[in-house]
Design a protein around this nucleic acid. Structure first.
Length: 791
RNA sequence: GGAGGUAUUGUCUAAUGGUAGGACGUCACCCUUACACGGUGAAGGCCUGGGUUCGAUUCCCUGUACCUCCACCA
C-alpha cells in the first residue's frame, strides 16, 4: 500500500472497477428480495451544489447498506430536463427567448443543447460514488418517458379523471405561462395604495387601480354598521361610469383600508371566490401576453396602465388619499413577477373528491421522520383546487390531443401511437363531425404531471412493462421536505389512479444542506457552494462523510472542517490498514485467551448490533456514529495496547486486529465506499486464508457481507474492560508525571479493590504499558484505579 | 392567521429522567518501528419562565428566536 492515501487516483480506479464488474447492476434473474429506490430526478437547470450532495448521499447510504444485506437493489436515476427550468437555462445561455425564436426552432435548440448538461450531471454523480445502476437512467424528456406521461393522461381520461375547463388561472406575465399554486411565493413589495372616491359614502382603498375597468361589484362586511346601509344599492365606477352592486360578505375585513372592497375579475383569489359565489359578470382586461386589452388602455403593459389611470384619476379628482405601503404579494418563484389572473381553457385532473382516500394512502406509507407525514396531511386537507396541468410553454411533454377545426371536439391519441407529437402527427380518422382538419393542443404538460410518475417510469409501465411486477410498489422514496406537498403527494395520486396502490412502502425525508451560515443555497443569494473544488481536495468519501453528519430530516450547514474530519478518518483507516498489511500477514484464527481481545470483540459485537438496528430505521447518522466510536477506540486504544504482542509474533492478536478492521471497514463502506473498496481489494481480497476464516466470498466489498453478530465470551469481555481501564489509568499517570508513553516502568500501584477483577489479565496490563511489576495497595476514590507509578 | 420543526460550549453537531459525547478552534505535553493529515491530556455548553418528579438539558405547558410549508394581504 502507498504510504499516503490519494483519493483522486484511487477513486478513478475504483469507479472503473465497479463499472467493469457491474457491481451495482440490478439483477433481473436474481431470486433475492428486491429493494427498489425512487430518487428525485434533479432538474437540469444549473449546477449541482452541496445541497444536492447532501440529500442524494443520504439515500445512497441506504442503497449500499441494503445491497450488503443481500437485497437485489434497484437503484435508478433520472434527469428532469423538460419544462420551464430547462427552457430558462437555454434562453439564458443563448440570450434569447422562446417567443423570439418560435416554437420549432426553440424546441430544436433545447433538444440539441440539453445533452451536454445531462452528461455533466451524470459525471458528477458518478464522481460522488452514487451506486446507481446507470443502465436504468431516464430523462423526463425522452420518448419513453413522454410515452409514460401521455399514457397516464389517456388513462386518466378513460377513467373520467381529466376535464377541460375555462377557468381563472394564475398567470405569470413575464414567462407568459399559467403557473400552479406551488410555483408561487410571497414577496414584500413597496406599493401605493389609493383611496378612491366612488360616491359620497363609498371610498375604496386599492393597490390595483388599473383593474378598475374590470370592477364588477363592491363588497362590505355584514358586521360593518357604517356601510351596512349601502348593501343592495348600486354605485358608479369612476371614469368608466358603469354601475355595480354593493354586496355584504364576511370575507371583508371592516378594519382594513376603508372597509369597502372592489371586486375585479380578477385581482386576487378572493375575487375568484366572489365571482363564483355571486355569479358575477366576467370582465377580462389582461390578455395572455400580459397586456391590457381594455380599449381604455389600448394594449399597454400592466405597470404602464397603472401610471396612466392614476394620472387620470387624480386629474378628475377621484383620489382622496395616496399612501406608500409595503405589502406582500404573490409572485412567480422563478422570476419574482407579480401574478395575474387570466381565464383560459385548461386541462385539469379531478381529485378534490378523494381527500379521504389520499389521507388513507398516506397512512399506509411509513414516514421517516414520522412527523413529516403531518405536512402531507395538512396539504391534502387544505386542497381547494383540482390539479391544473396545462402550461403555455414549449419544451415539455405534449398533450396527446388535437381539436377538430370544425367542431372543436378534442381527439385523443391512440395509446399504441405514443409518444405523439400533435404538431407533427395527425389523428388516424376524421372527427365524428366528418372534418379532417385538426389543430394540435398548444400547451404542454406541467412537469409534475410527469415527475409524479417516477415509480411507473422506473417500472417501464407503458414502455415494455418489464419491472412493473418486480419493483412496484417501490421499497423506498427518498426526497426533501420542501416538495412533500407536490412530489410525494402527486406521486401518490398517480399511483392510486394507475396502480390502485401506494407508490412506495416507505418514504424518507431528508433535510437541506445549507451554506456555512445556515442559509439555504440560492443563486440569487450568491451563496451556492459547488462540490468540485472540495471533491478535488478531499475526495468523494470525505464529502459523503459531511453528508452523513446529521440526522435524517435535519438541515445541516456545510462546514469545510466536517469534510476535514472525514478525511482524517479516511487517513486513519488507511494507515491502520497499512499496519495490518505489514504486521498481520500471518495470523491464527483460533480462539484467543486474551481478555483484551475479548474486550474489543465484545465492543465489535455490540456495534454490529446497534449499527444494524440504526440502519434498519434509516438512521444512517447514528449507525456511522456507533461504528466510528468503535473504530477510534480500536485504533487509539486496542491497537496501542496489543502492538507489542503483534511485534512479538502473537498471531492471535494479529488475527483480532485484522478481523476487527475487516468488520469496521464493511460497516463504514456505505459512507466511504472508495477507500473501503481500495483497502478491501489490497488487504483482504487476495488473502484466501482470511476470507475463508470469515466466510467472505464477494468480489466487491459492497456486494454483500454486512457483518453478523459474533460469538463473544461476555465474562472475558467484562474482565477485559477493567484491564483496559487499568491501562488507561497508567497511561494517564505517565502523562501527568511527564513519562513518555513507551517508556518502561518498574512498578505500578493499583488500589486493592481491583485485585480480584484483574486476576488473569495482569500480564496483559503489564505488557501494554511496559510495567515490570504491579502491586495492590490503598483504598482509593470512587473511579480511580491507579494509585501511582514508578520509573 | 394556521401547521410542522428546531433551540446544547467560540463554531458545527450527538446522546440522555440522575448536570452531557464527538469534531473544528484554543492551551499544555509527546516525532512511542501504521499515521505529526499523528498521539496523550486540559479549559469550555444544555434559550426564558412555569409544571410533573426525590431529581429535568431530557417529559408537559408558556414565551422568545430561527427554519420550512400553507392561507391571507382589497
Amino acid at each position: 500500500m502507498e504510504s499516503r492515501y490519494n483519493p483522486a487516483a484511487v477513486e478513478g480506479k475504483i469507479r472503473e472497477f465497479w463499472e467493469k464488474n457491474q457491481t451495482f447492476k440490478f439483477d433481473e434473474n436474481s431470486s433475492s428480495e428486491v429493494f427498489s429506490i425512487d430518487t428525485p430526478p434533479p432538474t437540469v437547470s444549473g449546477d449541482i451544489h452541496m445541497g444536492h450532495v447532501f440529500s442524494y448521499s443520504q439515500a445512497e447510504f441506504i442503497a449500499r447498506y441494503k445491497r450488503m444485506r443481500g437485497f437485489n437493489v434497484f437503484y435508478p436515476f433520472g434527469l428532469d430536463n423538460n419544462g420551464l427550468p430547462t427552457e430558462i437555462l437555454i434562453e439564458k445561455k443563448f440570450d434569447t427567448t422562446a417567443e423570439k425564436l418560435g416554437r420549432d426552432k426553440f424546441v430544436e435548440l433545447v433538444r440539441k443543447e440539453i445533452g451536454s448538461y445531462n452528461a455533466a450531471y451524470v459525471e458528477l454523480w458518478k464522481m460522488l460514488g452514487l451506486s446507481v445502476d446507470w443502465s436504468l437512467l431516464y430523462q423526463t424528456i425522452s420518448p419513453d418517458v413522454q410515452k409514460v406521461s401521455q399514457k397516464s393522461f389517456l388513462e386518466l381520461n378513460k377513467i373520467g379523471r381529466v376535464y377541460r375547463k375555462e377557468a381563472p388561472a394564475l398567470f405569470c406575465p413575464k414567462d407568459k405561462t399559467t403557473v400552479s399554486q406551488m410555483e408561487l411565493k410571497d414577496k414584500m413589495l413597496k406599493s401605493k395604495i389609493l383611496y378612491l372616491k366612488f360616491s359620497d359614502d363609498v371610498t375604496i382603498a386599492t393597490t390595483r387601480p388599473e383593474l378598475l375597468p374590470s370592477c364588477v361589484a363592491i363588497f362590505v362586511s355584514p358586521e360593518d354598521e357604517k356601510h351596512n346601509g349601502l348593501v343592495g344599492k348600486e354605485v358608479a365606477v369612476p371614469i368608466f361610469g358603469n354601475r355595480v352592486k354593493v354586496i355584504a360578505d364576511r370575507r371583508v375585513d371592516p378594519a382594513f383600508g376603508t372597509g369597502v372592497v372592489m371586486c375585479c375579475t380578477f385581482g386576487d383569489q378572493t375575487d375568484i371566490e366572489w365571482y363564483k359565489a355571486y355569479n358575477l359578470e366576467l370582465k377580462i382586461i389582461i390578455d395572455e401576453k400580459g397586456r391590457m386589452n381594455h380599449p381604455y388602455y389600448n394594449g399597454i403593459k400592466i405597470k404602464e396602465a397603472r401610471e396612466k389611470i392614476i394620472g387620470d384619476l387624480k386629474e378628475k379628482g377621484y383620489v382622496i388619499k395616496e399612501q406608500e405601503i409595503e405589502h406582500s404579494v404573490n409572485v412567480h418563484e422563478r422570476c419574482d413577477t407579480e401574478i395575474e389572473f387570466i381565464v383560459k381553457k385548461q386541462w385539469y385532473i379531478r381529485y378534490l373528491d378523494l381527500k379521504e382516500k389520499f389521507l388513507e394512502l398516506g397512512n399506509s406509507v411509513k414516514w421517516y421522520p414520522g412527523h413529516m407525514k403531518v405536512r402531507y396531511e395538512n396539504w391534502v386537507r387544505g386542497l381547494q383546487w383540482d390539479w391544473s396541468i396545462s402550461r403555455q410553454r414549449y419544451f415539455g411533454v405534449y398533450f396527446p390531443i388535437w381539436y377538430c377545426k370544425n367542431c372543436g371536439e378534442p381527439i385523443f391519441a391512440d395509446e399504441k401511437d405514443l409518444p405523439v407529437d400533435p404538431f407533427v402527427d395527425k389523428p388516424h380518422e376524421n372527427c365524428s363531425c366528418g372534418s379532417s382538419e385538426f389543430e394540435p393542443e398548444m400547451d404542454i404538460m406541467d412537469t409534475w404531471a410527469t415527475s409524479s410518475l417516477t415509480p411507473e417510469i422506473n417500472a417501464r409501465w407503458g414502455i415494455d412493462g418489464k419491472y412493473v411486477k418486480k419493483i412496484l410498489p417501490m421499497s423506498l422514496r427518498a426526497q426533501a421536505h420542501d416538495i412533500i406537498t407536490f412530489w410525494a403527494f402527486n406521486t401518490i395520486v398517480k399511483s392510486y389512479f394507475h396502480m390502485n396502490q401506494i407508490p412506495w412502502k416507505t418514504i424518507i425525508i431528508n433535510g437541506h444542506g445549507l451554506d456555512p451560515k445556515g442559509n439555504s443555497m440560492h443563486k440569487s443569494l450568491g451563496n451556492v457552494i459547488l462540490p468540485d473544488a472540495y471533491l478535488k481536495k478531499y475526495g468523494a468519501d470525505a464529502l459523503r462523510y459531511w453528508a452523513s453528519s446529521s440526522l435524517l430530516g435535519e438541515d445541516n450547514s456545510f462546514q469545510e472542517k466536517d469534510v476535514i474530519t472525514g478525511s482524517r478518518l479516511i487517513n486513519k483507516l488507511w494507515n491502520l490498514s497499512r499496519f495490518v498489511e505489514m504486521n498481520c500477514k500471518e495470523f491464527d484464527s483460533s480462539k484467543s485467551a486474551s481478555v483484551i481481545d475479548a474486550w474489543i470483540m465484545g465492543r465489535l459485537d455490540r456495534t454490529i448490533e446497534e449499527a444494524t438496528i440504526r440502519f434498519d430505521e434509516y438512521d444512517y447518522f447514528n449507525a456511522r456514529f456507533k461504528v466510528e466510536e468503535l473504530f477510534w477506540g480500536f485504533a487509539n486504544d486496542y491497537l496501542e495496547f496489543v502492538k507489542d504482542r503483534v511485534y512479538n509474533k502473537d498471531l492471535k492478536a494479529a488475527y483480532t486486529i485484522k478481523f476487527v478492521l475487516f468488520k469496521v471497514l464493511k460497516m463504514l463502506s456505505p459512507f466511504m465506499p472508495f477507500v473501503a473498496e481500495e483497502i478491501y481489494q489490497q488487504v483482504f481480497a487476495t488473502d484466501q486464508k482470511f476470507l475463508e476464516s470469515v466466510g467472505e466470498k464477494h468480489r466487491s466489498i459492497h456486494s454483500g457481507g454486512w457483518p453478523n453478530r459474533i460469538d463473544v465470551n461476555a465474562a472475558d469481555g467484562k474482565r477485559g474492560e477493567l484491564a483496559v481501564d487499568a491501562i488507561i489509568g497508567i497511561r494517564k499517570k505517565k502523562h501527568d508525571t511527564g513519562i513518555a508513553l513507551n517508556e518502561a516502568l518498574s512498578k505500578a500501584v493499583i488500589y486493592k479493590k481491583y485485585q480480584e477483577g484483574l486476576v488473569g489479565s495482569l500480564d496483559e496490563v503489564k505488557e501494554s504499558m511496559r510495567v515490570r511489576e504491579i502491586v495492590f495497595d490503598g483504598e482509593g476514590e470512587e473511579s480511580e484505579i491507579v494509585k501511582g507509578i514508578e520509573k
